[in-house]
């Protein structure tokens, strides 16, 4: 057993174990931890596949960004009453059996295809031992033939240059990925603006039905609410009437997008979810 095989075994085990623990664990913070384990081990697998830049990007973006964002989301939505969010038994059985069937199908497919023939057919000039990075092999950009240097090839492909050898060993200039690169950069900008727009602090109508949106944020930051047994809802003691609030809001030029008439369903939701808070 070579070192590479040993490392593959370690990383593959931790990747699969972390993923399965994410699916099994019910505590959301522990789920985030296991997701970190799984993602970090997957990054190790990327290193083993000679995708050094991608592995580093995985570590930076996933561990440094996505998982931290998830933990932030967990903390921002953790207020109020803590409800047990356990899945229903029948759904669990259905989901697990479906997932096992999918794994069986994928394993069968992986086992039934002759991958060796595919490798040798596609790489007639595969070097002995197969340890040299094939991506660097075929890329005549800087660092050709050196192991694990995919940064130059990735960067030049991103700005539109993708030189590669054709069958006879001649150099030809393929089309790169400049347009997808630009599209995804604009996409990231749109996502940034959209996420900030979605999560922004909303304008609040005092005394309006949407008490849960006071201060536009979490219920932990809102002012004290009084329980009104007659109308069976929480009221802001310092609130004006709805008409006054609407008139004031319109006079000040503000919009009220979140206003909707009283409806029993939302009252009931708020009532059940708001139990246990100080009145």
């Amino acid at each position: 057993m070579t070192v590479l095989q040993f490392l593959f075994g370690v990383f593959a085990t931790t990747t699969c174990l972390g993923a399965i623990m994410v699916a099994v664990t019910q505590n959301i913070v522990r789920m985030a931890f296991w997701l970190m384990v799984s993602v970090a081990s997957a990054s190790g697998l990327f290193f083993l596949l000679h995708a050094d830049f991608l592995a580093a990007a995985q570590l930076l973006v996933y561990l440094g960004g996505t998982v931290v964002i998830l933990v932030f989301g967990v903390m921002l939505t953790a207020g109020g009453r803590r409800q047990p969010l356990t899945p229903k038994g029948g759904e669990t059985i259905l989901a697990v059996s479906l997932a096992l069937a999918l794994v069986a199908l994928l394993m069968f497919t992986v086992g039934s295809v002759d991958w060796e023939r595919l490798q040798t057919a596609s790489q007639p000039t595969m070097p002995e031992g197969g340890l040299v990075a094939t991506t660097s092999d075929r890329s005549p950009v800087a660092g050709a033939g050196r192991l694990g240097d995919t940064g130059h090839a990735l960067g030049s492909a991103m700005i539109g240059f993708r030189p590669r050898f054709d069958g006879e060993g001649r150099l030809e200039l393929g089309t790169g990925y400049l347009l997808p690169f630009e599209i995804i950069s604009v996409h990231l900008l749109v996502v940034l603006i959209g996420a900030a727009y979605l999560a922004r602090a909303k304008r609040q109508i005092p005394g309006g039905p949407n008490v849960g949106r006071t201060n536009g944020g979490s219920p932990m930051t809102r002012g004290p609410l009084a329980w009104d047994p007659d109308s069976a809802q929480y009221n802001d003691p310092s609130a004006q009437s709805v008409e006054q609030a609407l008139a004031g809001n319109l006079a000040s030029g503000g919009g009220f997008s979140a206003f909707s008439p009283e409806e029993p369903t939302s009252i009931e939701t708020r009532q059940t979810a708001g139990e246990g808070r100080p009145a």
Binding site: A12, T15, C16, A19, I20, V22, A23, S38, A42, L45, A95, V96, L98, A99, L100, L102, V103, L106, M107, V110
Partner: peptide, 11 residues
């Protein structure tokens, strides 16, 4: 490994 990851994510 990817198949196991996919199934776990789907579950």
């Amino acid at each position: 490994v990817a198949a196991v990851l996919f199934a776990a994510g789907l579950t």
